[in-house]
Amino acid sequence: MKKNVIQDKSFQFAVRVVRCCQHLQSKNEYVLSKQFLRSGTSIGANAREASQAASKKDFIYKMNIALKEAVETQYWIELLKETGYLKEEEANNLHTNCTELCKNIVHYQ
């Protein structure tokens, strides 16, 4: 079976997002972390759904949703960093990974 780089990377990114949100929620931060969790895990879910698209148009549509979720996730990372909920190093690392996903998604289409 051929490996799908976007699916693999987006899944690993989602695992990091879940763990990060668990940490944030242990510090009683629920509102921003929930938004971050939803968008950060949605990237991979949409990419995986795209792999079963009925047509090329459907595939592009679903990958565009994945891209929009990735861009939203960048926003939440930036906000969590600026408000002090995420340390700069952690936020920068997550942001870099998310930016790589964006580039991969754009290239894959």
Score class of each variant (00 low, 15 high):
residue 2 K to P: 12
residue 32 L to V: 04
residue 49 E to C: 06
residue 68 K to V: 00
residue 87 K to T: 10
residue 36 F to W: 03
residue 34 K to L: 07
residue 18 V to C: 10
residue 48 R to N: 09
residue 70 A to G: 07
residue 2 K to A: 12
residue 14 A to W: 09
residue 70 A to E: 02
residue 19 R to G: 09
residue 103 K to L: 12
residue 97 N to R: 09
residue 63 M to D: 02
residue 55 S to E: 11
residue 12 Q to F: 13
residue 101 L to S: 02
residue 14 A to S: 15
residue 77 I to N: 02
residue 25 Q to S: 14
residue 63 M to V: 01
residue 62 K to E: 00
residue 94 L to N: 04
residue 74 Q to L: 11
residue 14 A to R: 10
residue 52 Q to K: 15
residue 22 Q to P: 00
residue 32 L to C: 07
residue 46 N to K: 02
residue 34 K to I: 02
residue 42 S to C: 03
residue 74 Q to S: 11
residue 20 C to Y: 05
residue 104 N to Y: 12
residue 2 K to E: 11
residue 62 K to I: 00
residue 29 E to R: 10
residue 99 T to P: 06
residue 69 E to F: 01
residue 42 S to Y: 00
residue 37 L to T: 03
residue 15 V to P: 00
residue 7 Q to L: 12
residue 51 S to Q: 15
residue 46 N to W: 00
residue 10 S to W: 10
residue 62 K to R: 03
residue 21 C to E: 08
residue 52 Q to T: 13
residue 75 Y to H: 09
residue 11 F to W: 08
residue 63 M to R: 03
residue 11 F to T: 07
residue 65 I to S: 02
residue 63 M to S: 02
residue 54 A to Q: 11
residue 23 H to S: 15
residue 91 A to C: 06
residue 36 F to D: 01
residue 19 R to H: 10
residue 53 A to L: 04
residue 94 L to E: 03
residue 107 H to V: 11
residue 18 V to H: 08
residue 66 A to R: 01
residue 14 A to Y: 09
residue 20 C to S: 12
residue 43 I to P: 00
residue 31 V to H: 10
residue 39 S to D: 01
residue 95 H to G: 07
residue 71 V to L: 15
residue 2 K to R: 13
residue 101 L to G: 02
residue 83 T to S: 13
residue 55 S to Y: 10
residue 32 L to D: 06
residue 50 A to W: 00
residue 103 K to F: 08
residue 66 A to E: 06
residue 53 A to E: 06
residue 13 F to I: 08
residue 73 T to K: 03
residue 47 A to C: 15
residue 65 I to Y: 01
residue 56 K to E: 11
residue 109 Q to S: 13
residue 26 S to L: 07
residue 82 E to Q: 14
residue 5 V to H: 10
residue 24 L to E: 07
residue 98 C to A: 07
residue 3 K to P: 02
residue 65 I to R: 01
residue 33 S to P: 05
residue 19 R to F: 08
residue 17 V to W: 02
residue 94 L to W: 05
residue 87 K to D: 15
residue 8 D to P: 07
residue 10 S to I: 12
residue 79 L to R: 09
residue 108 Y to G: 08
residue 9 K to Q: 11
residue 48 R to T: 09
residue 12 Q to Y: 14
residue 105 I to M: 12
residue 36 F to L: 03
residue 37 L to D: 03
residue 28 N to Y: 10
residue 12 Q to H: 15
residue 109 Q to K: 15
residue 71 V to C: 12
residue 43 I to D: 01
